[in-house]
């Protein structure tokens, strides 16, 4: 029997639950040089701010056991260029729903960016990034306080028509209360998790590897942390969850969905294996067969 991989995120139907995570897939078209990216469920585009940003000083990357630390610092061409230059390029090679990842340094900026991107018909979901650990002021600051998370969600919700998914940081004491605050603020979904704040020190120099000293730790090593947070938040909210963090194979997708995710994002794995998402999607029917799953939506939250 043909396996049903389709999922539904607040009315946006995806052929499968696999979405490359923001920041690991550029604006998507880079990967069209490797394979036909239309096999993907969707793509979460590179985090976008109002103004163009160069980002942090180099080095921005550090190797870790089963993962890496990045400190890119939201390098992006700014919302106007994303709309005028990047969206037309990705649209040429990708015909499925797109997710815009929006960042900001103030509520006013989040509102401005979201209102603009909301008008772009190729964007079907807005992912509100209140969890970037690599910028000062704004970024993660909105994602570490329930009040601020609710306030920014409410403000953006007022000016947007598309499903609004809020991407949260794991660098908090109580992820559940932040997720609930976003739901109260009108969020249509939650994306869990952004990177864990981490660092490495070079033994030869005795100094931090990353120029900005600290950065966001991601990769297979953080999968259990992400899974735990998805599991906890699933119990507390009624809105869908996109599970992110360390997913590198089809089995991880199943595990994340059992914990409560409706869809998943794949991040660090793309950097090492540009075919990671494609291979996961192609392998899902086999793994579903192994565990006697006919329809992926049947298993969402079934670990509870």
């Amino acid at each position: 029997m043909v396996k049903d991989l389709s999922v539904n995120l607040s009315g946006v139907k995806l052929d499968n639950p696999v979405i490359p995570a923001s920041g690991t897939f550029g604006f998507g078209y880079e990967f069209a040089d490797f394979y036909d990216i239309n096999c993907l469920g969707s793509i979460s585009l590179k985090g976008t701010t109002k103004d163009e940003r160069y980002g942090n000083n180099l080095p921005r990357i550090a190797e870790c056991e089963r993962g890496l630390i990045n400190s890119i610092g939201l390098q992006n061409p700014g919302i106007d260029k994303v709309i005028s230059e990047e969206l037309p390029k990705i649209r040429k090679v990708f015909k499925k729903p797109l997710i815009a990842n929006i960042s900001g340094f103030s509520i006013k900026e989040y509102v401005y960016n979201c209102e603009k991107i909301d008008k772009e018909e190729q964007i079907e979901i807005i992912e509100l990034n209140i969890s970037c650990p690599n910028v000062n002021h704004g970024g993660m600051a909105f994602g570490t306080s329930p009040e601020a998370a609710k306030e920014v969600t409410e403000a953006v919700k007022k000016v947007t028509t598309k499903p609004l998914y809020v991407k949260l940081t794991p660098n908090v004491t109580n992820i559940v209360e932040i997720a609930k605050a976003c739901e109260d603020g009108g969020a249509d979904g939650i994306v869990l998790i952004n990177t864990l704040l981490g660092m490495r020190i070079n033994l030869k120099t005795g100094k931090p590897v990353i120029a900005n000293k600290m950065g966001g730790f991601s990769g297979p090593a953080i999968f259990p942390v992400a899974l735990r947070m998805v599991y906890q938040v699933y119990d507390a909210v009624k809105i869908p969850i996109i599970g992110v963090g360390g997913i590198e194979k089809a089995e991880d997708v199943i595990e994340m969905m059992l914990a409560g995710a409706t869809a998943v994002e794949v991040g660090a794995a793309n950097l090492v294996n540009p075919y990671a998402c494609k291979e996961i999607i192609e392998d899902l029917p086999r793994v579903m067969g192994k565990y006697k799953i006919e329809k992926l939506t049947d298993i969402i939250g079934k670990a509870h």
Partner: peptide, 10 residues
């Protein structure tokens, strides 16, 4: 990070 233009690490 990646070597092919995706991560903006360099």
């Amino acid at each position: 990070g990646c070597g092919f233009g995706a991560c903006m690490g360099c």
